[in-house]
């Protein structure tokens, strides 16, 4: 109830206006939303690319963080970033239990991810990406990430 009311409000707001580079693609229900983000400055790693994000909300949103992953399909790839795995899972403290706060919202998460990409200069994957992608069966929210990098 709490979640749906809040998501309804966010949706109404997002259907009105969104920051540049962020577009709402699909929000048919209050569980899964799809959004597209673009990096608008001239970062050569991401120039001209559009990435698709999938938000999954739990019943306890916004007390609990949404699950946010990049989606790979025919037209969208997973952005290169030392904290984004090939399967789209994002290692960002904001999305973790400890870093999340109910004052964040879908829009602010998108803006954070945008700036995380903007400031990146390394076209690489996280350490141990291959193993993680092959053997991970956990949902992103259950993974215990270690947040060691304070630069991003």
């Amino acid at each position: 109830m709490f979640a749906s009311r809040r998501l309804g409000k966010e949706l109404t707001k997002m259907q009105g206006q969104l920051p540049p580079g962020i577009t709402l693609v699909e929000a048919d229900n209050l569980e899964n939303w799809l959004l597209d983000i673009q990096v608008l400055d001239a970062n050569p790693i991401y120039a001209g690319e559009t990435y698709r994000l999938k938000f999954t909300f739990s019943q306890n949103y916004p007390i609990e963080a949404p699950e946010v992953v990049f989606v790979k399909d025919d037209t969208h790839s997973i952005p290169w970033h030392p904290h984004i795995y090939t399967n789209g899972i994002i290692c960002l403290d904001l999305l973790d239990r400890s870093g999340w706060s109910p004052v964040h919202n879908v829009e602010s998460v998108c803006v954070s991810l945008q700036s995380m990409l903007t400031s990146n200069t390394r076209k690489e994957r996280p350490e141990g990406d291959e193993n993680f992608v092959r053997y991970n069966t956990q949902r992103p929210r259950d993974i215990n990430f270690v947040f060691h990098d304070n630069k991003v």
Partner: peptide, 12 residues
């Protein structure tokens, strides 16, 4: 409503 009067948690 004025955005200054909106709670950041429930957005109302």
């Amino acid at each position: 409503p004025d955005s200054n009067l909106v709670c950041l948690i429930c957005h109302a």
